[in-house]
């Protein structure tokens, strides 16, 4: 078991290394760099810039060096000093800007996962046990509907409905008076009041997918011979269901964490922009538009790191849940 975890941890290192390269490369993909964007901005406002100024700035930001040197400097800063570089646009170290938002991002992702799992399992079970019943057909219809609706559309519709018909403030994770206030009971209640809508919007697509997976897994398990064996023991139908087929159907569900987590994170980024949540989403969008490379790169890198860790956790959970994997 310990060997298994160590092995998985060892795999994490090259994965993260590859992710960092890809993240850096993606940011370099569009033509030009932060300064070209900046110049274009200035030019559109009527300002003329001398070529010498641009060259001087490029040198100051290190943008005149080859890409691999820039990457090396960035990586060296992260690994040796925990220094993720400076945001060009905001003129601040990236570290100062992101931690708070990253925290909210992951809180939101975590809450979404809890929401998704807590609902997907019972609905999936019901759908499988009552296969081809009204319950099953309704669950199936809803699942396909929400799978098909893009989450940003859902976010817009939800916000519209909630504010027009219920007159509630939408957007953000807090009411105006609590945004900069220290944590208190009131702020917590306000947070709970706000957070459920984004959680619902981000999670519903994954929820639909998980319901389908749970249903399919369970249908497979229900016809397995060990279920008949348990029935022949004289076990009651409900105990039998929970103890055997459901328990076994959960195993593949655990491994879905590996792709549900990235889905939730990317959904969160898009939905956050629409609902203006104080998470990494809006910040990342702005950084990408401005080609603010260190900020964008760091965000992508950290989101990926946390996703890889999430996948690692799902691997470990699966090993705990399934002895067959543990003993391999």
């Amino acid at each position: 078991m310990i060997l298994f975890i160590l092995k998985r941890l060892l795999f994490v290192i090259p994965t993260l290394f590859a992710v960092s390269i890809v993240a850096f490369a993606i940011i370099q993909l569009p033509p030009g760099d932060y300064l070209t964007t900046l110049m274009a901005d200035w030019a559109s406002q009527g300002g003329a810039v001398e070529a010498g100024t641009v060259a001087a700035m490029r040198e100051r930001y290190g943008l005149d060096q080859p890409i691999y040197v820039q990457y090396y400097k960035w990586m060296a800063g992260i690994l040796t000093r925990g220094d993720f570089g400076i945001s060009f646009e905001l003129g601040q170290p990236v570290t100062n800007l992101i931690w708070n938002r990253l925290g909210f991002s992951f809180l939101l992702a975590f809450l979404t996962l809890c929401f998704v799992w807590a609902l997907a399992i019972p609905i999936g079970i019901l759908s499988a046990v009552r296969q081809y019943s009204i319950t099953d057909y309704s669950a199936t219809f809803m699942a396909f509907f929400f799978l098909a609706v893009p989450d940003f559309v859902l976010a817009l519709v939800a916000m519209y409905v909630w504010s027009t018909y219920f007159g509630q403030s939408v957007g953000g994770l807090f009411s105006a008076q609590y945004i900069d206030a220290p944590w208190s009971w009131g702020k917590f209640l306000d947070f709970v009041n706000h957070v459920w809508l984004p959680v619902f919007v981000i999670g519903i697509g994954s929820l639909a997918a998980l319901v389908r997976i749970m249903r399919a897994n369970l249908l497979d398990e229900l016809s397995k011979p060990y279920v008949t064996t348990a029935r022949a023991k004289g076990m009651s139908e409900f105990e039998l269901l929970i103890r055997y087929p459901v328990r076994l159907a959960l195993n593949p569900l655990i491994s879905t964490l590996g792709w549900i987590l990235p889905a939730v994170i990317s959904g969160e980024i898009i939905v956050s922009v629409v609902m203006s949540l104080p998470t990494t989403g809006p910040l990342l969008l702005r950084a990408l538009l401005a080609q603010d490379m260190y900020l964008a790169g760091t965000l992508i890198l950290l989101i990926s790191v946390l996703t890889v860790i999430g996948t690692l956790i799902s691997d470990i959970l699966l090993a705990i849940a399934d002895p067959r994997i543990r003993y391999q």
Binding site: K224, P225, Y226, T228, T229, A230, Y244, R247, L248, N251, A321, D322, P323, R324
Partner: peptide, 11 residues
């Protein structure tokens, strides 16, 4: 039953 592998739960 016939298949002693699948007639018992593996986990």
């Amino acid at each position: 039953f016939q298949e002693p592998m699948s007639s018992l739960s593996p986990i």
